[in-house]
């Protein structure tokens, strides 16, 4: 057991709008009824860059929004906002963001990402969600590297009330993954959530190790892992794109979990990464509490983005 943090009230998709964010900035740029000029669009660009969408993706996004604005006969700042919001939403929907379908049992879900993005916490939250939907779940501690990572997952397992498959620290993570798949089969589980050690995507040996974990799972049970979720910290800047590219290349990412959206960051790099790779955003981490993992909702996300 650990101590509970002071609780904060969630709203909407669990996200709370904060003043002085992207939306506030847009409002001050766009006014409302005033006609939009080139300068307006320049400032929109800047606001998107300020939300970590990145220079390249921003230019693309603004071009598309401008086309839409023109085609719709837009004139005012409100029209700019509408065109931009629709464009962002469409891009999210286009890659299938929001729809996470667990699939027929068993589902092996592999969690990957760089250090400190919140993989272990996300696993606990997802396990809690699945259990509350009546699913049978186990966790697998394939982060055998970081000090106390196995204990961290064990504590979460106890709190959520699900078994944790683990070996001793320093064990071969592939072997843990193998055990996990075997357990999924023998215990008729709906899902096994496999935690892996955080690794920076430019460390090829560690990426090779991750690819091996994937192969072990695949060989033990063809068609698995059904989901490979990249856990991306919303506070991350443009490196997030390199992360998404590298992890996709090595282990075939099927979805993005965008964490730490309860801070002031907007997670714009996830927009760029999801768009570039054609991979949906499936969940959002919106707080410290065990239930603070929301299925990603493009409409709610866009509304939140433009609100605060």
């Amino acid at each position: 057991m650990t101590m509970a943090r002071p609780r904060r009230e969630p709203t909407g998709m669990g996200l709370r709008a904060r003043p002085s964010g992207f939306g506030t900035r847009l409002r001050s740029i766009l006014g409302g009824g005033a006609p939009a000029t080139d300068a307006t669009w320049d400032e929109v660009e800047e606001a998107l860059i300020g939300a970590d969408v990145g220079a390249e993706a921003t230019l693309e996004l603004v071009d598309a929004a401008r086309d839409r604005f023109r085609d719709d006969g837009g004139r005012t700042g409100d029209d700019v906002r509408r065109a931009l919001a629709t464009e962002i939403r469409d891009r999210l929907v286009r890659v299938g963001s929001g729809g996470f379908v667990l699939g027929d049992p068993p589902s092996v879900i592999l969690f990957v990402g760089v250090n400190g993005t919140g993989k272990t916490t996300t696993i606990a939250k997802l396990a809690h969600r699945l259990v509350s939907e009546g699913r049978s779940v186990a966790l697998a501690a394939a982060d055998t590297f970081r000090a106390a990572a196995v204990e961290q997952l064990r504590i979460w397992g106890e709190q959520v009330g699900v078994p944790v498959i683990a070996q001793r620290p320093g064990a071969d993570p592939g072997a843990v993954a193998f055990d996990a798949v075997a357990a999924a089969e023998s215990r008729n589980l709906d899902a096994v959530l496999v935690d892996t050690a955080g690794r920076l995507q430019n460390k090829q040996q560690l990426m090779d190790e991750l690819a091996k974990i994937r192969r072990v799972i695949e060989r033990r049970m063809p068609g698995q892992p059904r989901h490979v979720l990249l856990v991306l910290d919303a506070t991350t800047g443009q490196n997030g794109i390199l992360q998404a590219e590298a992890f996709s290349r090595e282990v075939g990412v099927t979805g993005i979990v965008l964490t730490k959206l309860d801070g002031s960051a907007k997670g714009g790099v996830a927009l760029a990464a999801s768009d570039r790779l054609g991979v949906p955003i499936v969940f959002a981490g919106v707080g410290e509490e065990i239930d603070a993992l929301a299925p990603f909702d493009p409409d709610a996300f866009v509304e939140w983005l433009f609100a605060g």
Partner: peptide, 11 residues
């Protein structure tokens, strides 16, 4: 004192 096993990690 909040993150599970943070103390273990430092130990």
């Amino acid at each position: 004192v909040y993150r599970p096993a943070a103390v273990d990690q430092l130990v």
